[in-house]
């Protein structure tokens, strides 16, 4: 299949990083960036390709996190199995929210609102329900064995996450090249026209939301294993809804590498903020918010769009750029 070569190249280069540096700071940074990239890739399937902007992807991230943690702690199940069930749980939550929203015909601002509200409901429930550890949170017992999805060092965590990320990139590429993907993009561009051509837009959106939720839930499950701690503010908090959306929008919505690019950028900005201003709560998000506004204003197609524009200037004008019309 064409288009897999860039993904393979990126995968190999990134897999080599732990051999080049053993610095925990570097690996930590990349783990957080990949985590956001993975969550963002989930958002990108639905928002970037399908044009349905969710403001509540925390609902899926958090479900992945809690299912992974709670099943282990309360029922002593195997961590990998819990992780898989976390992904399934996220997908289920996505299917339910999507089913309700799309069947009610919610789109645009209303879809954004309702996803945000669902995430908030889950956050409040998680902060009072006994099974989630309520306000205290849930701590996963230290058990540094690969069978328990815990490792002695950062590098194996890094490779597992990288593998998940690469799977999400390949999946996105496959979707791009499939009928499902063509239908998804078509309904983003013009829903009525898509319907007239035989596209069951409700079903396609629902499918996209389910896949999207599963990917973001995988990021959540990984988070639980990496930090071994979950509480409602982390799992279902607005921070992840914002970062999951920010990464693809900054990197380039509806592109395979957009979320990864964007995640690296926002995490770099976050680190720079910390270096300049210390660990000041809120300042990183102030910068993310400004970047979001600036990107929408000046580079609506993100970094990917900028690259394309530069490339368009370098190549002869015969190849027209794919600038999206605002008509």
């Amino acid at each position: 299949m064409k288009g897999l070569a860039p993904i393979a190249t990126v995968a190999v280069l990134l897999a080599l990083v732990p051999f080049i540096t053993a610095s925990n700071a570097v690996l930590n940074f990349l783990v957080m960036a990949f985590l956001i990239a993975l969550a963002g890739q989930g958002w990108n399937i639905l928002g970037g390709y399908g044009g349905q902007y969710s403001f509540g992807h925390a609902a899926f991230f958090g479900t992945g996190t809690y299912v992974t943690a709670v099943l282990q702690v309360r029922y002593g199940m195997n961590a990998w199995l819990c992780f898989a069930l976390g992904i399934a749980g996220g997908a289920l939550v996505g299917a339910v929210i999507g089913g309700l929203s799309f069947r009610s015909g919610l789109r645009g601002s209303y879809f954004a609102l309702v996803t945000l509200a669902f995430a908030e409901v889950l956050r409040i429930v998680a902060s009072v329900a006994p099974i989630t550890g309520a306000g205290v949170g849930t701590l996963i017992k230290l058990d540094l064995r690969p069978e328990a999805f815990q490792f002695q060092s950062r590098a194996p965590f890094y490779w597992v996450l990288l593998a998940l990320l690469v799977v999400s990139l390949i999946l996105t590429r496959i979707i791009e090249d499939s009928r499902f993907g063509a239908y998804l993009v078509a309904l983003r561009e013009n829903e009525d026209a898509a319907k007239a051509l035989g596209v069951d837009t409700t079903l396609v959106k629902l499918g996209a939301m389910t896949i999207s939720a599963a990917i973001t839930a995988a990021a959540g499950g990984f988070y639980a294993q990496y930090f071994l701690f979950v509480d409602a503010g982390i799992a279902y908090g607005p921070w992840i809804s914002v970062e999951a959306l920010l990464a693809p929008i900054i990197g380039g919505v509806g592109t395979v590498f957009g979320p990864l690019l964007g995640a690296l950028v926002i995490r770099t900005l976050g680190e720079l903020t910390k270096i300049v201003a210390g660990d000041a709560p809120g300042l990183d998000l102030v910068i993310y918010g400004s970047v979001l506004v600036a990107v929408v204003a000046f580079a609506p197609r993100g970094i990917a769009g900028l690259i394309e524009r530069v490339r368009g200037r370098l190549t002869p004008p015969a190849a027209p750029s794919l600038e999206r019309s605002h008509g």
Binding site: Y53, S109, V242, A280, V286, G289
Partner: peptide, 30 residues
Amino acid sequence: VIGPAAHGEDRNILLVTLGLAVMIENALLY
């Protein structure tokens, strides 16, 4: 801010007002 940044697209307005919300709220937090 909102008007010029949105380029007349609803999806952009959504994002710009969200960006402003994140900025204002966290500036206050900071």
